[in-house]
């Protein structure tokens, strides 16, 4: 007969306490439960990022390399044919991912930096700072953003830098409103009061006390803002006042190859060429929307009726 154990341990008696999961483990569990649409969205975004990052190694030709045959048909040396002055469409599509997504991401980050920073400042300091900033934003938002962007581009000229700054400033108005609205709810909390009473500086309160608590709506807004910025830049490039040639980007590619659509009766593939970059834009937008939807559902716990 074995001697009964003299030591007593809760661990043996009750079920073993479940270990505290790290964020990586939790993320994996969430991912496994993600719906199909979210998986689709994430896969598409990942593919786009890989293509954008490794464009020079994936693309068969350079983005501005001109070959002897303009409007070459699909197949052979040029998988998707060539454009109006003989550049490989596939290579330009791949480089276009890099340029278009890169500029859109930079713009969105800048917009969040400006809008988010000012929104937090307005929420914390209230009073006249809040009033002045809010009224300025009201006026800026009264002008349709595409029209405003067109007007500013006509003054500062179309370059990548002015494009990024102009659209970022115009879009930061919406970020400002959202940040201010959600931060207002957090600013009145006791722990913010405590931090301010013990003499923390404005930047510290913004970064350490408020920002972590308003992250979820901001992250979701980042996805939606990115889509909006991406579509605006594509539209401006399509209109010929956005990203300038010879830099490959999807908006201007649609415009340059638009004439090919007239030949769809004779060669359907040629007719599809101008639609490819447009489809690339649409696919990325749909993918980001799917992921944002899933994220919103996860963080807010309620289904968005839209």
């Amino acid at each position: 007969m074995s001697e009964p154990s003299q030591t007593y341990s809760v661990q043996q008696e009750a079920a073993p306490a479940s270990p505290r999961r790290g964020w990586r483990e939790r993320a994996l569990i969430e991912l496994r439960k993600a719906p199909l649409t979210a998986w689709f969205g994430m896969t598409v975004i990942l593919c786009y990022l890989v293509v954008a990052l490794f464009a020079p190694w994936i693309a068969p030709h350079g983005q501005a390399e001109v070959f002897a045959t303009p409007y070459a048909p699909w197949g052979g040396k040029f998988l998707l044919g060539t454009d109006q002055i003989g550049r490989d469409v596939l290579s330009r599509l791949i480089y276009g991912a890099r340029n278009t997504i890169g500029i859109a991401l930079a713009t969105t980050f800048l917009a969040f930096l400006i809008g988010g920073g000012l929104g937090l400042m307005a929420a914390i300091s209230r009073g006249w700072v809040d009033q002045v900033l809010s009224r300025i934003v009201d006026v800026l938002m009264a002008i349709p953003s595409l029209i405003f962007a067109l007007m500013l581009l006509s003054i500062f000229g179309s370059s990548a830098a002015s494009l990024i700054v102009i659209i970022a400033v115009l879009d930061s108005t919406r970020v400002f409103r959202l940040t201010r609205a959600v931060a207002m709810n957090v600013v009145v909390m006791e722990y913010v009061e405590a931090a301010r009473l013990r003499g923390e500086r404005l930047g510290w309160v913004m970064r350490r006390e408020i920002l972590p608590n308003i992250m979820p709506p901001l992250v979701a807004e980042f996805g939606l803002r990115f889509c909006f910025v991406f579509l605006t830049i594509a539209a401006l490039s399509f209109l010929g006042v956005g990203i300038q040639p010879p830099t490959a980007d999807w908006g201007s590619m649609v415009r340059e190859n638009a004439a090919l659509i007239q030949f769809a009766q004779y060669d359907l593939k040629a007719g599809l060429t101008p639609l490819l970059p447009a489809a690339a834009i649409a696919l990325l937008t749909v993918a980001v929307n799917f992921v944002v939807d899933w994220f919103l559902m996860k963080t807010s716990g309620l289904r968005d009726e839209f």
Binding site: C227, L231, A234, A235, F238, G251, V254, A258, I261, Q262, F263, A264, Q265, L268, G271, L272, P274, L275, A278, A279, I281, A282, T285, V286, N289
Partner: peptide
């Protein structure tokens, strides 16, 4: 409607041209 929202206007326009004007 969700799919038309996600498309840029010029994409919708060119699809319509392709379908209703050339083919």
């Amino acid at each position: 409607t969700l799919s038309t929202i996600s498309m840029p206007e010029f994409f919708v326009a060119y699809i319509l041209i392709l379908l209703l004007s050339t083919i």
